[in-house]
Amino acid sequence: MTVITTAEQLQILKDLVAIPSVNDQEQAVAEYLQKLLAKHNIAAKLVQLSPGRASLVAEIGAGKPIFAVSGHLDVVAPGELDQWATDPFTLTEKAGKLYGRGASDMKSGLAAMVIALIEIQDQHLLKKGTIRLLATAGEEIGEPGAIQLYQAGYLDDVDALLIGEPSGYNITYAHKGPLNIRITSKGEAAHSSRPQLGYNAIDPLIEVIHNANREFRSLTQTDDTLGKVIFNATVIHAGDQVNTIPALAYALVNVRATPAFTNQQVIDLLQQLLKAQNDQGARLSLTVEMSLEPVKAPKDSRLAQLAVAIGKPYAKADIPLQATAGGTDASNFLKDKPASFPFIVFGPGNLSSHKVNEYVDQDMYLNFVKLYQQLFSTYVNEAKGDTLN
């Protein structure tokens, strides 16, 4: 028996995409889901982050074991609107694809999770245990929602975790640890015709970035699952006008660390490169704006293997288990969990995430509603005793 029709499932996703939660305004998404869940007698709590920003926590069932499922409420900016073929905040169907910002990353996964919980609840499919929904604010920048939920203890009693980021018909069990770092260079302003009277803040910053590219790309440390560290300078800003020597410059760099070359080793190497420039008269400083640890879960966990088995008929092919470079809220959620803790990333979507004309395949979205319903209930119901390990 289907509680929520296909048309209603599509409308829910359309409603979520219409809320422009671009690194902000997540509370509006959380409130929408809270009201939807309430219609099916599922209580959900807003966890306030800041004005206009909140995460959402909801549960069905009771007692142990506790299976957490998670997705984020925010999306990235749509970019240049004139490059979109459709309005990014109006879900638009074309040839079986649903276009809109967040259609892939990750409002389709979030909608599929919520609908699956409703179906499980209304059809009385859960025979024991608890399924806990953790819908987070701010995953795209800094993961403040996940940090808040972790600190509030919402992961303390959890026995396994699934995050519905857009993996498509692939399952991720490990990912690298993202770092966002700001490198600031201070100089002294002067007229560009008299550069000797100032100090160009750009020059040592360029040297550091150049040297960092060389150093990180020549590293040989390789993790057996996650491979090598990835380093990218992604933002550079300096100067106010063309005929003035800039007194300030900064760069933002994004690094993906591994257990073979850790977050702290990344920071230490960059500090060494800064010191080399500072010893020659530069004034460079480093600020770590985000540092999230790599995640490695067992590839052969019952959760991973069950997801492979249940997902195969929907994918109509074998489902691979993989490690990826992209980070998730799991870096915060699993801080205190043992290496044996069951965790996977499995959700509808594709590589159009963060791009112009982002989309999700309509059939995939609808399939994940059914897939999640089966996976969540089966996984908890078939647990041995009060643990999901």
Rank of each mutant, 00 (worst) to 15 (best):
residue 104 S to W: 02
residue 43 A to F: 04
residue 275 K to Y: 10
residue 98 L to E: 11
residue 93 E to H: 02
residue 159 D to P: 06
residue 275 K to E: 15
residue 267 I to Y: 08
residue 79 G to W: 02
residue 50 S to A: 04
residue 120 I to C: 10
residue 108 S to C: 08
residue 85 A to W: 00
residue 331 S to M: 08
residue 323 A to T: 13
residue 53 R to Q: 13
residue 50 S to I: 02
residue 158 V to C: 12
residue 294 P to N: 03
residue 127 K to Q: 14
residue 324 T to A: 12
residue 159 D to N: 12
residue 91 L to T: 03
residue 134 L to T: 06
residue 259 P to A: 11
residue 6 T to Y: 01
residue 314 Y to C: 01
residue 114 V to T: 10
residue 85 A to P: 00
residue 273 L to S: 05
residue 16 L to N: 07
residue 126 L to G: 10
residue 282 A to Y: 00
residue 115 I to K: 03
residue 97 K to L: 06
residue 75 V to N: 03
residue 126 L to S: 08
residue 356 V to C: 00
residue 129 G to P: 01
residue 172 T to I: 14
residue 319 I to G: 03
residue 361 D to Q: 10
residue 253 V to D: 14
residue 357 N to H: 02
residue 323 A to S: 14
residue 41 N to T: 15
residue 167 S to K: 13
residue 371 L to M: 11
residue 140 E to P: 10
residue 83 Q to T: 10
residue 59 E to K: 13
residue 138 G to R: 06
residue 241 Q to F: 12
residue 197 L to Q: 13
residue 27 Q to A: 11
residue 247 A to H: 12
residue 29 V to W: 02
residue 67 F to G: 01
residue 147 I to E: 11
residue 194 R to N: 08
residue 28 A to M: 05
residue 15 D to G: 03
residue 383 A to S: 13
residue 37 L to N: 07
residue 7 A to S: 12
residue 266 V to T: 14
residue 70 S to L: 03
residue 177 G to Q: 13
residue 145 G to S: 10
residue 34 Q to V: 14
residue 12 I to H: 15
residue 196 Q to W: 11
residue 327 G to C: 03
residue 113 M to E: 11
residue 279 D to R: 00
residue 23 N to R: 12
residue 97 K to Y: 03
residue 259 P to H: 11
residue 377 S to Y: 07
residue 183 I to H: 07
residue 214 R to H: 15
residue 119 E to N: 05
residue 204 P to K: 05
residue 53 R to E: 13
residue 237 H to Q: 15
residue 276 A to F: 07
residue 358 E to M: 06
residue 101 R to K: 07
residue 165 E to Q: 04
residue 189 A to G: 07
residue 40 H to V: 00
residue 353 S to L: 10
residue 173 Y to Q: 01
residue 131 I to D: 07
residue 154 Y to L: 06
residue 228 K to R: 15
residue 272 Q to P: 11
residue 150 Y to D: 12
residue 131 I to K: 09
residue 255 V to H: 05
residue 316 K to I: 01
residue 138 G to M: 09
residue 378 T to A: 13
residue 226 L to R: 06
residue 116 A to S: 09
